[in-house]
């Protein structure tokens, strides 16, 4: 599979990838729900196939500040997973995880950063475990890496630093949010398989 195949993924293949992401994100949302004691809703996953030039805007204006927790995916598939939270949601999550009043997290010190990183680790691991079971594959997560930075820098650096695709890039993006609570807590689960692994995913779920 190369760039041209990527641009010509059929609707059936896109549906299959959405289904895979839905299973992963569903499990990650359950984990987040258990960690926070809140009901977490997920949206229908979006299959994004874009020119690299366009990814800077994918998570919002490129100078929006986000927390991104990135892990490599290894084993039968290669690629990455990322949990992305807008800065305000990262603060809300810290409030909840650290048992604080709403709006009391004002800065990100070691304690907050460590909580966010561990949460990203747990959510991505839940996502990958669900994919492993569903596809009958062995998937191993790497250690997580957390950044709190401009959205444009986070996503373009992810694509440019890892993997071989520099022209057209791929990800499945599932948005999540807390349902009916006072906190604004939302974010996205991203699955970023390397392009050769996309073929393996489609093969594993018998979409040829």
């Amino acid at each position: 599979m190369d760039m041209d195949d990527l641009l010509q993924l059929s609707e059936i293949e896109r549906d299959a990838l959405r289904e895979v992401a839905n299973i992963g994100a569903g499990h990650a949302a359950t984990a987040l729900s258990q960690m926070t004691g809140r009901t977490i809703m997920i949206d229908v996953p979006e299959v994004n196939i874009r020119h690299l030039e366009e990814v800077a805007e994918m998570l919002g204006p490129p100078d929006t500040v986000v927390a991104g927790i990135l892990m490599h995916m290894m084993g039968d598939l290669t690629g990455r997973t990322m949990v992305v939270l807008p800065e305000s949601s990262a603060r809300s999550l810290c409030d909840i995880l650290l048992g604080r009043q709403n709006d009391s997290t004002v800065s990100f010190s070691e304690m907050e950063l460590s909580s966010l990183k561990e949460t990203g680790n747990i959510l991505s691991s839940a996502y990958l475990n669900a994919l492993s079971d569903f596809m009958g594959m062995m998937l191993v997560p790497s250690v997580p890496s957390l950044v709190l930075d401009f959205a444009g820098a986070v996503l373009t650096s992810t694509y440019l630093s890892f993997g071989q695709e520099r022209d057209v890039v791929f990800c499945v993006d599932t948005a999540f949010r807390v349902e009916g609570e006072v906190e604004s807590l939302q974010g996205e689960f991203l699955l970023l398989p390397d392009v050769p692994s996309l073929q393996a995913i489609l093969g594993a779920i018998a979409v040829e």
Partner: peptide
Amino acid sequence: RGAGRLITLGLGSC
């Protein structure tokens, strides 16, 4: 040239 600004946002590895 002249007045104004040239701006670029969110450089990571770029």
